[in-house]
Amino acid sequence: MIRTHGLTKRYGAITAVDQLDLDVREGDVYGFLGANGSGKTTTVRMLLGLVLATSGTAEVLGRAMPRAGREVLPQVGALVESPAAYPRLSGRANLRVHDALAGGRRRGRAGRVDDVLDRVGLGGVDQRPVRAYSLGMRQRLGLAHALLSQPRLLVLDEPTNGLDPQGIREIRDLLTELNAAGTTVFLSSHLLAEVEQMATRVGVLDRGRLVLQESLEVLKRPTGRTYVRTPDVAAARALLDGQVEAYDEASLLVRVRDVAALNAQLVGAGVRISELAPEKHTLEDVVLAASSAAGDRFDRDVPRVGS
């Protein structure tokens, strides 16, 4: 659905995107992750033909962009940065205008508009002009616009920007539903927790370079270490000398092959255990390990042993 090779964008001496090789497959919910300023939006704009690459190539739906934009873009729904709208018109009127300009059939237009407004949670909005909308309402309207053409591919840049937690959940559920019905979703975001709940594959951008691209299932496989929560940390460490790789005041990470044998060993020595489980990486762990620029620009919690 999306494939790039050596895609690069420079602004003078600044390299915003550097030798990017993306591979987004049909049926993916692809989480395109990176800290603010890492080059995500520039990449999205190049994919849609809004910005010309300095070098490299990009294909969308198997066609070269931006050369094939006239054939490709009607099959792509996009939401990039601040959604465009006529501020004096209502959201419903805006969508009718956009549908007409995109060549949508006049017959059934009102029904199509009402349907997408309902899907993004704006079905009950009155005729107030878009200039009176909140940021979250504008984001919903932008997503409604992206859905009007029933696209094969959705390209979304921070689609939950400005939404409250309930709104974020509603958009997440909608994207999951669309993907299940066959729509491929390319989702650019810095909200790790949200992407982790719906992505099938992820790519991590760090200072313009793609530092990781893999399925989420592979990235979250067990690490081979076992997480042990116990009030007897000192006793467990002494018993498991040489096998403990990390610990804090209430837990340990232990490298063992046989978890059942570990449990029997600890219990047999009188060590009290409140939790024993294989360690798995979260998406947060993976992204922070791959990205040297992550810092506090990601929406994340403080990592801890066993997280």
Rank of each mutant, 00 (worst) to 15 (best):
L266D: 00
V51S: 09
Q243I: 05
L22V: 07
P74I: 00
T4D: 05
T4G: 03
A93L: 09
L141G: 02
T200A: 10
Q75A: 13
V195H: 01
T54H: 07
L47N: 00
V125K: 10
L117I: 04
N179Y: 11
A16S: 06
K280N: 13
T226V: 12
R225C: 15
R257T: 11
A261V: 02
L156P: 00
S215E: 07
G162H: 04
E217I: 14
V125W: 11
A236F: 14
G108Y: 04
R3L: 12
L187D: 00
L253M: 09
Q197K: 15
R297L: 13
H190Q: 11
V305E: 13
D118A: 13
T54E: 10
L153M: 11
R88I: 10
A260Q: 09
R3Q: 11
D296V: 09
D118C: 08
V259Q: 07
R67C: 10
V97M: 10
V120G: 01
D126N: 13
Q265T: 04
R201W: 10
G49A: 07
L143A: 09
L20I: 07
Y86N: 03
G124P: 15
V76C: 02
Q150A: 13
P222H: 10
Q166F: 14
A53M: 07
T41H: 03
G56D: 06
V155M: 09
L240C: 05
V97Q: 10
L175F: 12
Y227H: 14
D258P: 01
G104W: 08
L262N: 00
V125T: 04
L73V: 07
A269V: 06
T42Y: 01
L266E: 00
F298Q: 03
L22P: 00
T42R: 01
S307W: 13
G37M: 06
Y133P: 01
G77C: 08
R88H: 15
R10T: 11
V113H: 01
R112D: 03
E59L: 12
S82A: 14
T41V: 08
Y30I: 14
A294C: 13
V51N: 09
A13M: 12
L89S: 03
L212R: 05
R152V: 13
D157S: 00
L148D: 02
A13W: 11
S215F: 14
G31Y: 01
R70D: 13
R109D: 05
D18I: 03
R201P: 08
L288N: 10
G182S: 06
A68T: 06
L89N: 03
S188Y: 03
S274Q: 15
H145L: 15
A64W: 01
G56F: 01
N263D: 13
G104D: 04
V24N: 00
E71F: 06
L143K: 03
G103V: 13
A84T: 12
Q213Y: 09
D99T: 15
A102L: 14
T282M: 05
V195A: 05
L288H: 12
E194M: 09
